[in-house]
Amino acid sequence: AEKTGIVNVSSSLNVREGASTSSKVIGSLSGNTKVTIVGEEGAFYKIEYKGSHGYVAKEYIKDIKDE
């Protein structure tokens, strides 16, 4: 049951290796980017990222929809 969301930041949002603010940053997404959410862990969504997965803070994702 995948969902999509939109990155809701003015600059960019860090994509992390794990569901923690201390996890390594593996990339970033600019505002209004559409993401595919494959799961959630605590305050983070697990998303599809560059052929693999990454984690982003839930508070910066809006317009969550079921695909």
Results as ranks from 00 to 15, higher is better:
58 K>N: 03
36 T>L: 09
25 V>T: 07
43 A>N: 13
65 K>L: 10
42 G>T: 04
39 G>I: 02
43 A>C: 07
26 I>Q: 02
49 Y>K: 00
27 G>H: 02
23 S>I: 01
48 E>N: 12
19 A>V: 06
32 N>E: 11
42 G>C: 05
63 D>C: 07
56 V>T: 02
4 T>C: 07
17 E>T: 06
15 V>I: 08
51 G>H: 09
16 R>E: 01
58 K>A: 06
26 I>F: 03
58 K>G: 02
38 V>I: 14
1 A>N: 14
4 T>E: 13
8 N>S: 12
62 K>P: 03
55 Y>N: 00
13 L>M: 08
19 A>H: 06
66 D>S: 13
9 V>W: 03
11 S>M: 12
14 N>I: 13
40 E>F: 06
59 E>D: 10
12 S>W: 10
54 G>R: 02
31 G>D: 13
49 Y>M: 03
45 Y>N: 01
1 A>V: 10
1 A>E: 15
42 G>D: 09
16 R>M: 15
35 V>R: 00
60 Y>L: 07
59 E>L: 11
61 I>A: 01
17 E>D: 15
2 E>N: 14
17 E>N: 09
12 S>L: 11
44 F>D: 04
51 G>L: 08
44 F>K: 01
54 G>F: 03
17 E>S: 12
6 I>D: 03
31 G>C: 06
8 N>M: 12
38 V>D: 02
56 V>K: 00
13 L>A: 11
47 I>Q: 00
9 V>S: 11
67 E>Y: 03
67 E>M: 09
22 S>I: 11
46 K>R: 08
63 D>A: 11
9 V>N: 08
14 N>G: 08
55 Y>C: 00
58 K>V: 05
62 K>Y: 13
52 S>L: 13
13 L>T: 09
64 I>V: 13
16 R>W: 15
62 K>F: 11
35 V>I: 13
29 L>E: 01
50 K>D: 10
15 V>G: 00
64 I>Q: 06
25 V>S: 05
39 G>M: 04
2 E>W: 05
14 N>R: 10
31 G>N: 15
64 I>C: 06
66 D>I: 15
22 S>T: 14
3 K>R: 12
62 K>A: 13
5 G>W: 02
24 K>V: 09
28 S>W: 11
60 Y>C: 07
33 T>S: 11
66 D>L: 10
5 G>K: 04
58 K>R: 08
21 T>H: 15
40 E>D: 08
20 S>A: 09
2 E>C: 10
41 E>T: 09
28 S>D: 07
22 S>H: 14
8 N>P: 04
10 S>N: 13
6 I>Q: 05
67 E>K: 14
34 K>L: 14
25 V>C: 06
48 E>Y: 12
20 S>L: 07
9 V>L: 09
5 G>H: 04
10 S>F: 06
63 D>N: 11
31 G>V: 08
19 A>S: 10
27 G>V: 02
44 F>M: 04
21 T>K: 14
53 H>P: 05
37 I>L: 04
33 T>M: 13
7 V>Y: 01
55 Y>Q: 00
22 S>L: 10
47 I>A: 00
39 G>T: 04
